[in-house]
Design a protein around this nucleic acid. Structure first.
Lengths: 197, 197
DNA sequence: GTAATATAGGACCAATTAGTCCAATTTACA
DNA sequence: TGTAAATTGGACTAATTGGTCCTATATTAC
């Protein structure tokens, strides 16, 4: 290891960038926004992260890793798998309070903004959705084994359904829905899962 | 009415702009994109539509009017209200085929892109969601009267739930879900509506 | 000391952005 | 024929965009 060592924390700077992209989207986050928030010079930026686009892909993957890790721990620590699923849906209501919550989900935001126009971004998006879907799939399988969800419907379809409702709820939050509305919708979809024939 | 009459069709030009905004979003649609697609000069554009932002608001309202009208007719012509609801969900699977379908919903796309940062746009978004929610509310009330949906759950919550699932499904389509996946999820949520206790 | 690397800062770039303004022209109606 | 209004096209702004390059300086290992 020769030469002067890096002064800033690369991962920390990426984390800051991720928060910005999350709140504002890719296009609306300018290079100057990034530099100011990350606290580094343009030279350091390009030397370390290559380009805005490259950094964004890294942020997407970092985001995916974070939510996968958070969800996995949540599932492992939940009293039952059904409780985990219920919490994943109902807890979205808490996003209605602060502006941070109203950011939605970085992966879904990205899908909405421009995954159609950029195949490498599209791959990141698909990988992210796949990863969360897999965790819900584990939860559904376990909940079916517990008898909390009927086994009449295929677990993979139920997992897709949960991802869909989560994404729809996050959309509603971004669009301005109230806390009470989100709770009602979430509770309704939980009960449909439980009361399925 | 004095002076030279307008050569282009104002509503037609707005319609073209709406299609562009729908496919690409607000920021990604540049003025030159608009002028080229609308087939008018920059001078005519600013004389007629005031600004890109004003035109966008008009497009949002026009979009809302179109879907409200389409949905109202669909509800009126459907064999049953339940059939209308079912069709609204399952038909989203057809969006997976063509690139046009993968545009999602202009209102939800706008909510995702920047409704938080622009209060006048936020009002358009809320009005749009409210309008579609109201139609689903009518449909749910009718379906409950028909006995196709249980009356145990409040109709307004069910309407919110349907809007959520529709928005989630459109998200999934944008993110790359397959036709079969969408059908399965849609059918599942329809059956949960029907089989509710 | 020297090589290697990181730093900040600024000059510079070509392109694009939304938007204004003007001049010349065209069309209609009274 | 005169007036009002719409047309095109181009000149023009001021700002911003992502990105490159260069210089000068600082820090480390060998």
């Amino acid at each position: 290891m020769l030469g002067r060592p890096r002064e800033f924390d690369e991962n920390g700077a990426r984390e800051v960038a991720m928060q910005l992209f999350w709140a504002k989207g890719y296009e609306a986050t300018s290079l100057s926004n990034l530099l100011a928030a990350m606290g580094i010079s343009k030279s350091s930026f390009y030397q370390t992260f290559e380009s805005k686009h490259t950094l964004f892909e890294q942020c997407l993957n970092q985001y995916r890793d974070i939510i996968v890790s958070t969800m996995s721990k949540g599932l492992a620590n939940a009293p039952t798998s059904m409780a985990f699923i219920r919490h994943a849906l109902v807890d979205i209501a808490n996003d209605t309070n602060d502006p941070l919550g109203r950011r939605g989900c970085l992966i879904m935001n990205t899908a909405s903004e421009f995954s159609q126009r950029d195949s490498s971004i599209a791959r990141c998006v698909e990988a992210g959705i796949q990863a969360t879907r897999d965790i819900f799939l584990q939860a559904v399988n376990a909940a079916q084994a517990d008898g909390d969800i009927s086994s009449n419907t295929r677990a993979d379809i139920l997992a897709d359904y949960i991802v869909t409702v989560v994404s729809g709820l996050k959309n509603q939050v971004k669009a301005g829905a109230s806390r009470k509305q989100i709770i009602n919708i979430a509770e309704l979809s939980v009960s449909t899962l439980q009361e399925m024939a």
